[in-house]
């Protein structure tokens, strides 16, 4: 199993991240939202017709610490391209994902490798994102039932806490997921995943709300696994443009090698 994990770690690298982050709808401030609407908002926060941007990913593990600068493009849910800009040693390494297929370009040896699709179904491990975060096609609203479990002030913020219980037949490993959003604009603060015994398994923290064009978003996202408290992955968005026109050859093997 570790074999698979490591491979994913190595290769799927950032393939799906794009899916999670880019794009969002303009925020409709004011009116009170139902728990489902809150979750939909969180889900849609980073989604859009297309996106292009730059981000830095800082990964801390027990053995190493590194920082990657990445440029990404995405279109819909199906297509994404990620290229490493820094560090120098890995510059030009790129990953293309179209639907279920995934390719990697390795500039050092000037070769493209196609990943067996079975590899993608494993979790993504070099950082602390799981595959669910990366290529998940279902939306929270479809897999969970929700209730607001807290509304009020906590640590100086007015917040709403939504607890999500997976539907009995949903393909979800968690016991429950607790999402906390700001009362004022429903931007997420954190998201805590509990396992089936309702022990905390993983925490995602959203911070540093910033603005990219029309959208206000948390620009830093941190994942901390509960069983390894000294490890974390931090993603910082530096630039991002939504809903732009991308030339059709953006997601081709040719552009992968460029």
């Amino acid at each position: 199993m570790d074999l698979r994990k490591t491979i994913i770690a190595t290769l799927c690298v950032i393939a799906g991240l794009v899916l999670v982050f880019p794009s969002a709808q303009p925020v409709r401030c004011g009116g009170k939202l139902s728990p489902k609407e809150i979750l939909d908002r969180v889900d849609d926060l980073f989604r859009g017709i297309s996106s292009h941007g730059r981000m830095t990913m800082k990964i801390t593990t027990a053995h190493w610490k590194r920082s990657l600068t990445l440029e990404f493009w995405s279109e819909g849910k199906e297509k994404s391209l990620i290229r490493i800009l820094a560090p120098k040693k890995e510059k030009g390494t790129a990953t293309l994902r179209v639907g279920n297929d995934m390719w990697n370009y390795l500039p050092k040896v000037k070769r493209i490798i196609k990943l067996p699709s079975s590899m993608m179904s494993a979790s993504w491990m070099g950082s602390h994102f799981t595959n669910d975060d990366l290529v998940k096609e279902s939306r929270m609203a479809e897999d969970y039932t929700f209730e607001v479990t807290f509304e009020g002030e906590r640590e100086g913020h007015k917040i709403v806490e939504v607890t999500c219980h997976p539907k009995p037949d949903a393909a979800v490993v968690w016991g429950k997921v607790v999402v906390t959003v700001r009362r004022v604009d429903y931007l997420p603060l954190n998201c805590i995943y509990y396992d089936e015994d309702l022990y905390r398994a993983r925490t995602m923290i959203f911070s540093k709300i910033g603005r990219f064009g029309e959208r206000r978003l948390p620009t830093v996202m941190t994942v901390v696994p509960e069983d390894k408290p000294n490890e974390k992955t931090e993603v910082v968005y530096e630039e991002m443009t939504f809903d732009l026109d991308l030339p059709p050859q953006t997601f081709s093997l040719r552009s992968l090698q460029r």
């Binding site: 490591t6 190595t10 290769l11 390795l106």
Partner: peptide, 15 residues
Amino acid sequence: VVVVQAADGSLGNEL
């Protein structure tokens, strides 16, 4: 073509 995650976290690749 070989691709691995190296001990320093980087992407090791070689022919």
